[in-house]
Design a binder for these strands. Sequence first.
DNA 1: ATCATAAAGGATAAAATTATCCTTTATTAT
DNA 2: ATAATAAAGGATAATTTTATCCTTTATGAT
Lengths: 167, 167
Amino acid sequence: MKISFIWDSFPDLVSRVKKLIHMFSKTCQYAIKAVIYIHKQSLEGKKVGAKEIGQEIDAPDAFTAKILQVLVRQHVVGSFKGPTGGFFVDKSHESKTLKDVVLAIDGDQLFQGCSLGLNQCSEENPCPLHFEIKNVRTKIINMLTIKSLKQLAEEVGDGTTVLARLA
Amino acid sequence: MKISFIWDSFPDLVSRVKKLIHMFSKTCQYAIKAVIYIHKQSLEGKKVGAKEIGQEIDAPDAFTAKILQVLVRQHVVGSFKGPTGGFFVDKSHESKTLKDVVLAIDGDQLFQGCSLGLNQCSEENPCPLHFEIKNVRTKIINMLTIKSLKQLAEEVGDGTTVLARLA
DNA sequence: ATCATAAAGGATAAAATTATCCTTTATTAT
DNA sequence: ATAATAAAGGATAATTTTATCCTTTATGAT
Ligand code: FES
Ligand code: FES
């Protein structure tokens, strides 16, 4: 999945400072997809290994394993070692949401930090975007909490949504 | 402005995959602040140099200069070389908004790309966040277009908002 | 015309993020 | 008990983003 840009062909014409900024870090995108996949498999009572997860979400498996370590420590998902081991979720993970996944991986900058990078978001000394950003944050938090991870897993299960795509 | 984390003190306790993800890249944060500052100075008919801009927005000035090159090429701001030269805005930049700044620096991923990193955002083959993300995007675009750059500059001018903070 | 100034541009360097590999530890099946 | 399996963890590498420095080009002041 190598992404190419039109301006890659004309370095001297544009020589633009290119970037691929998303709302979530790449690591966090993997984490979100991994957790949804684990939920999906847990619906059928299956535990899954890091390798399988990596393949299903189109992420490098060693890196996926690292991310899963964090998620286990933060109790977003559970794990067992050894044969028949793997990652899973049970009753104890029921209350977790995508917001918890994002917090575990990307931290709270998206929710709490100053969007323009001032040392902290402050009502007394606000940056130019401060007051507008609140609506955005409300929507983001809503997006990350409105549906349960189980629901999201079911949507993937019935083909309504997908965790990976080919070309 | 060195940011320290509580878990830096307990590497073995947490050894978390830490990250500082914002909505905008650091480069884009600089760009936004730089453009607002240029507008502010242009209100008083002043052109400003990259060095001064860097200092006012608390960004490295050589790096700020690079960012400004891109913004000039994208016609978000204007520039003149030589003595009495510098960066400025005039009538021809009146219609530009923060959205143009973000597009110039971070590209359109935030507005168009798949939030979970699938090769492209697609209605037919949507990722689990696809339908929810739309509301968020509407809000983000609103935030970046509701106020003119001139307005934002005036708010900084009268002290309502700030581009940098000390501690 | 010459000089000083400031942006433009090229080449590198530093830091952070993403990715891989290999060893250790826990668990299960035999 | 032993061997096989899979997560946990450590070390390191590749890539991308951020940052610096130095040279060239354009412009205005003298
Ligand atoms: S978002 Fe910048 S100060 Fe609150
Ligand atoms: S945001 Fe992922 S497919 Fe549209």
